[in-house]
Amino acid sequence: MTDTNGDPLQRMAERVADCISQSGYAFIEDEKIESLATALQSFLRAAGIQPEDGHSRPAARPPAAPVATRSQASTT
């Protein structure tokens, strides 16, 4: 389990990961919990769900766009 330091999104991500694992669907490794927390944050923002006061987290940086290789660029 990771050190949550009071981050509610991190705690939620850990609980979601536990639920997914207990259902037998997939196992989410500890080093992937932060990514799950970021995905939860993105979902809540996209759905227009505002956190309670004092529970906000800085906006996550969007992932870098994939870079096409020369061979991929010539086929598109």
Rank of each mutant, 00 (worst) to 15 (best):
M1H: 11
M1D: 12
T2P: 10
T2M: 10
D3K: 13
N5W: 09
N5V: 09
N5C: 13
N5K: 14
G6V: 12
D7Y: 03
D7S: 12
P8E: 04
P8C: 06
L9R: 05
Q10K: 07
Q10L: 15
R11L: 14
M12L: 15
M12G: 05
A13G: 02
E14F: 00
R15E: 12
V16K: 00
V16H: 00
A17D: 02
A17Y: 00
D18L: 05
D18W: 02
C19S: 15
S21N: 09
S21K: 08
S21M: 03
S21I: 00
S21D: 08
S21C: 07
Q22V: 06
Q22K: 12
S23M: 14
G24W: 04
G24A: 09
Y25C: 05
A26L: 10
F27W: 09
I28E: 01
I28H: 01
I28N: 02
I28K: 01
E29R: 02
E29W: 00
D30A: 10
D30P: 03
D30K: 05
E31L: 01
E31H: 07
I33R: 00
I33T: 02
L36H: 01
L36M: 03
Q41L: 07
R45L: 07
A46R: 12
A46H: 07
A47F: 04
G48L: 08
I49A: 10
I49N: 06
Q50N: 12
P51M: 04
E52A: 15
D53N: 11
D53S: 14
G54H: 09
G54C: 11
H55V: 08
S56Y: 04
R57H: 13
P58N: 11
A59P: 09
R61H: 06
P62V: 07
P62K: 07
P63C: 08
P63I: 10
P63Q: 13
P63H: 09
P63R: 14
A64I: 08
P66K: 15
P66S: 14
P66G: 13
P66D: 14
V67C: 12
A68G: 05
A68R: 11
R70N: 12
S71M: 11
A73W: 13
A73G: 09
S74F: 07
T76I: 06
T76S: 06
